[in-house]
Design a protein around this nucleic acid. Structure first.
Lengths: 116, 116
DNA sequence: CCAAGACATAGACACATGTAAATATTTACA
DNA sequence: TGTAAATATTTACATGTGTCTATGTCTTGG
């Protein structure tokens, strides 16, 4: 439904935590974004993709980086994608995920932004 | 046990996500910090405390800001405190929580830090 | 010392989450 | 067309999480 915001969009529309209290709605919008990052496997996935050459990585590479089943990695990638942290592009048989830098920037600004 | 790192300390010792892949150990250290923030109530608690005059707030004020039971708020505050995001100080009958700015800064740098 | 108020802890319960096995889907190529 | 490879989806299950009620622990005032 097009009128709903992705978590990433939600994070873009608030003052930093230390500036003013978050509204209930804003907090409920942002929490899923942090939840998406708040898992060791997904943190590593994000860092692998984001730091990879070209800012993107193939699922085949990602699977190899963990001792987890392929469906589990796929599951985590889906969560990061739906949160708006990873873009997804299919090229041939392979799927490439790309880190959305803007998303990370917005989130960082929300968390670390100065009070004034 | 003094040799264990709080999540906050863990976040301080890594390059930004976009610079290089997080080690498994690092990811496992940092995830709890994000988990602590990844809840609407705790996000609002952090923002209320961090944006409050003096950077601190009394539990009595925090309870009033939510329609949740007092033990529930106490539970959330404990999680934020144990993650290293809030400092706790008892003054008389009241308990004051104070935002650890350094913690938020480190986390923001980890998430939003530039690749190079 | 006792009662009341502020806050924390314990226990219980519904619900969410991470994982794997099995299966489906899509694509390329012989 | 049919087979193999890459990725996603479904289902199931053990574990984790948010919340409440009941109760405990401090601290202060009387």
């Amino acid at each position: 439904m097009s009128w709903e915001l992705t978590p990433v969009q939600a994070a873009a529309c608030c003052s930093p935590l230390a500036r003013e209290p978050l509204s209930e709605t804003a907090a409920e919008g942002i929490a899923p974004l942090l939840k998406a990052l708040a898992d060791p496997v997904r943190l590593r996935l994000m860092s692998i993709v984001a730091s990879h050459q070209g800012g993107e990585a193939c699922v085949c590479d990602l699977n190899d980086a963990f001792e987890l089943s392929q469906p589990t990695i796929s599951h985590h990638l889906k969560i990061l994608h739906e949160a708006g942290l990873l873009d997804r592009e299919k090229r041939g048989v392979w799927v490439y995920y790309r880190a959305r830098n803007e998303a990370l920037q917005n989130l960082a600004a929300l968390i670390g932004g100065q009070a004034r």
